[in-house]
């Protein structure tokens, strides 16, 4: 699919880091979502497997991404999401969206939302939901930035 064709001239491309944290090697979901993001016109960087939270945050900063999308099927989400969120905040990257998916029970999804993590997508979610979510988050952020600049200037 030609990703450029989906974008209007001058529109900024969303940059997404698709990340596989921890020791879990189940990358089917990560690769499928990365392909779906690319087909949707996002710029996608995939970290590869077995990344530590530190490695993910360093890559996010270095690549200047808008979104970090983590895939966690190992059950270690309650350790990994908060850790990445904390490291992003420490690095001053509070405007990066941390979202993701995997096998994450509803109670844990709610607990992570309360900690500032974005939406998390469970098994069976259409990739289009994640694409639409990131698009609307990105547009909102850009609008807020423009408004902020307008007010300040």
């Amino acid at each position: 699919m030609d990703s450029e064709s989906q974008m209007s001239a001058g529109e900024q491309r969303v940059r997404v880091l698709v990340a596989k944290p921890g020791l879990d090697g189940h990358d089917r979901g990560a690769k499928v979502i990365a392909s779906a993001f690319r087909d949707a016109g996002f710029e996608v960087i995939y970290t590869g497997l077995h990344q530590t939270p530190e490695m993910i945050v360093a890559a996010a900063i270095q690549e200047d991404v808008d979104v970090v999308a983590m895939s966690v099927l190992s059950g270690a989400h309650m350790t990994l999401f908060p850790r990445v969120k904390a490291l992003l905040d420490e690095a001053g990257a509070t405007d990066i969206l941390l979202t993701g998916g995997g096998i994450i029970p509803e109670d844990d999804v709610q607990a992570l939302l309360a900690k500032g993590v974005g939406r998390l997508f469970g098994p069976g979610s259409p990739t289009t939901d994640a694409v639409a979510y990131i698009r609307s988050w990105f547009e909102e952020r850009e609008t807020a930035r423009e408004a902020g600049q307008g007010a300040g200037g």
Partner: peptide, 10 residues
Amino acid sequence: PRSLGEVGVC
């Protein structure tokens, strides 16, 4: 250290 959060989980 790399095992943090994953011990006995899966």
